[in-house]
Design a protein around this nucleic acid. Structure first.
Lengths: 216, 216
DNA sequence: CGAAGGATTGATTAGTCTCAACGCAAGTGG
DNA sequence: CCACTTGCGTTGAGACTAATCAATCCTTCG
């Protein structure tokens, strides 16, 4: 068990991976930095997420991971991880499932960046994070923590912070959300999903309970 | 073994997955269609690629797959696939490796769409496909097949066909490439990589124990 | 030979970026 | 406890990349 301060790096591009990280508390983010200095945030991790199942198969990390908030993680060694995988087919299947969902989410982000407008992208990110947080019981009614700065939203959505700011104002004016002091309130989830063209299929929630699919 | 005509669908979003597809000959593409009609191409498959390892763990496909060219594939049943996985740790590790590379590629596409310009995105796509084709021996000198229409390049790069056309002209005028009759020639690979900010690390061409596979 | 899909070109517009400044709030050191 | 610093959010003006709309040309192929 290990803790990190907000914005501290856990893993840097180029590192030789040697453990699997399991998030226990807080948010983390995966990102890539380009030679021209621009940064793309590739995914967010919340409690229960594995940073990279089985990474030690790879020679070198192709991305970095940093804490968003104060962060607590468990490090799982290669031997422990492999023992887990072999201990039962059900566990190894669950790990495969986690990995398949991770790719599915990455594909959806690709789709967002390629086809959605700024407004739609931000709405989509909010839908995704809200649902993911809800499945781990970290929402209260229509509220959740949303500890990202506008610059981080920008780097995740492929936009500039200035444009994120203006777009958030639109989302607020349209009565869809409120975002203040790192706290997100969704006033009209149906409307937000519609605006984002959000379809939760890609999160493959079925096995965790259909009751969570009921929206608002 | 099965064949498909160019542009024919192998798998449709919403299908219940029941086999793993292995590409034997030709190119295929994974894509997603949004309610507003826009399409994002998410990845290309070339010979040797698995369309989706272990997909049958999921209840429902969240994307579609179609042939780009005339296509030949092998269908691997769930039982056969699982038998393969259990037959040896080296095989199951190789399959994990394939999957990890798939996610890594997806992350790089996310980065392209979020942070690279039109010019850089197209250059990057060409670098990636050229290297992947080279590792399976499907390049000759600095040439390879590149069977995409400009509309397909556009849907992969998050651009319009018109803009792809103009950008290709720039790439040609800059002396980096030629693309004609579905045949790509790279005149200056170093320059193309530089323009694309292309770093092949994410393809993880080296992996632990790869030399034991007789692959490569 | 005609049809159809793909590539190309031109003119205009929209969405987002860039640059620059300013405000506010929280944390820090004196 | 106050002044200073710093990071984050907000606003405005102008520039630019890429989208849109629309027409034309070129290939390929039945």
């Amino acid at each position: 068990m290990k803790t990190f301060a907000p914005r501290e790096d856990l893993i840097r591009e180029g590192d030789k991976p040697h453990v699997v990280n399991l998030v226990l508390e807080g948010w983390a983010q995966r990102y890539k930095q380009l030679p021209n200095g621009r940064r793309q945030i590739l995914s967010f991790f919340i409690p229960g997420d594995l940073c990279d199942a089985n990474v030690f198969i790879l020679k070198e990390m192709d991305h970095s991971v940093s804490a968003v908030t104060k962060l607590t993680i468990a490090e799982i060694s290669r031997t422990d991880f492999e023992a887990m995988m072999e201990s039962s087919p059900r566990i190894s299947q669950a790990l495969w499932w986690k990995e398949l969902v991770t790719v599915a989410v990455q594909r959806e982000w690709t789709t967002s960046l390629g086809q959605r407008t700024a407004y739609e992208r931000i709405a989509h990110l909010m839908c995704e994070m809200f649902i993911r947080l809800r499945t781990i019981g970290m929402t209260a009614d229509n509220c959740c923590e949303f500890p990202l700065t506008q610059t981080e939203i920008a780097d995740a959505a492929g936009l500039t912070p200035v444009h994120v700011n203006r777009t958030l104002q639109q989302l607020r004016n349209d009565g869809l959300i409120d975002l203040d002091h790192k706290r997100l309130t969704i006033h009209d989830f149906g409307g937000l999903m519609k605006a984002a063209m959000f379809n939760p299929t890609y999160l493959h929630l079925e096995r965790e309970g259909a009751h969570l699919d009921g929206v608002d």
